[in-house]
Design a binder for these strands. Sequence first.
DNA 1: CGCGTAGTTGACGAGAGTCAACTATAGTGG
DNA 2: CCACTATAGTTGACTCTCGTCAACTACGCG
Lengths: 248, 248
Amino acid sequence: MGKRKTTPLKDHAPDGHHCTLELKTTKLGMVSFFRDLKQDELDQIVKRFSANHYQAGDEIYYQGEPARYLRVVVEGAVKLLEYTEEGKDVVLDILNPGSYFGSLKLLGSDVYTESAVAQSGSCILSIGLKDFREILQGFPSVGIAILDTSAEKLRSSQEHIKQLTTEPVETRIANILLTLSEKFGENKEEGTLIQLPFSRKDLADMAGTTTESASRVMSNFQKEGIIDTGRQWVEVEDIEQLKAIIQK
Amino acid sequence: MGKRKTTPLKDHAPDGHHCTLELKTTKLGMVSFFRDLKQDELDQIVKRFSANHYQAGDEIYYQGEPARYLRVVVEGAVKLLEYTEEGKDVVLDILNPGSYFGSLKLLGSDVYTESAVAQSGSCILSIGLKDFREILQGFPSVGIAILDTSAEKLRSSQEHIKQLTTEPVETRIANILLTLSEKFGENKEEGTLIQLPFSRKDLADMAGTTTESASRVMSNFQKEGIIDTGRQWVEVEDIEQLKAIIQK
DNA sequence: CGCGTAGTTGACGAGAGTCAACTATAGTGG
DNA sequence: CCACTATAGTTGACTCTCGTCAACTACGCG
């Protein structure tokens, strides 16, 4: 156990032909607010989206830019974060395929209040807000579904607030590991590999702490056999123990 | 300066006849997502809401209850909070007239994830989710407007996260005082009185700190002439200095 | 194989939480 | 109207978690 230190992560091939039309359609159908549509309606909608590829680390948009698109993750992972004046980054979320991001401000104009960065090689669909508005008018059920989804986002954001004010660093990190392993986990013999390149700094920015503190917590987790970890990767080996830390 | 220690707050009369039909209509029209409607459309919608009065401290709903209503503050103030297992309360927001709260989960069933308490004597309108759904179908513009509003809520929730992870207690409290004085401020000769009964504990639960720390910060602010304060009330006397603390 | 960056570890200190004693205010009931 | 009490708020002393600074190690890429 824990002898291997080399990265077990797959390279998400970011080549241009990976994000096919079929993949686009399948994934859009997975987005919660398109779930109820019929196949031909979905096809109609897919056509209005355009696909883009990003390599790990690419900026998809930057806070302060005029917000003109709504986007959907088809493949890969997208990190939403705010850069503060003092150079402290705050990671708000890491999105998995099927999640939407960008702007929902259909009225008036707006700027992005956070930045979006591809965390791994990613395929992203985007749609202009005007077009999206037309979809909303054509398919009212989409509007109701999206309200639902955005209520869910608010919920998880509030959960985040609660954790920051009530839980110590160790618990917050345990929570993040659990969430990430659910979102990006890949079952291996020895445990659940989080199929996502992410550093101690990413983890720290998610937990609202420093790389050093994150590192200390991770070292302890490894000593206790809860995880195995190396450069930019983590494998959860004992989920029950993680949950126990969260509960206590 | 600061000789007076008795409460300067008005009693929000919570008598049953205070929240008139006119008031209801006016205030509903102020809710951002009904703003674009014509008068007769608004009248039609107002009829579907029912009004309730609450005294300061009354629970409007409790986390875990089945969520069946969408509500709007017509008068007074509503505190949204989560009670944690360890007895630490987390205040998510304090709403002023014109704000909505409750559930937007139109699909499937849901339970409230936070609790709502009247912070002062309040008049609240509620509508069943089924009825609201019908309104959405009848007036598509409402759906688009509400998407906008909920995006705004998400935004302010993310700002909250950012503050918790990057700002010290003093700055967070300064921010809260500034926000509250904008939402509930009443101009007086000596400054802006926050027309809202709220304790050190409320403030602490908003800032994610303890009553003792909140008290210390408030004492310093008073010494520096930034505020005047007493039991359950605060008056901001030097907004510029508050802003300076937030910036630095 | 070696350089650059990610990650680790230790020593130290500061901000904020805890515990406890105390003071001041508002609302009460005589 | 005043005294009494319950509760809000204050303040001090102490502690502890976590952030800071710094030196070091190790992995991965060219």
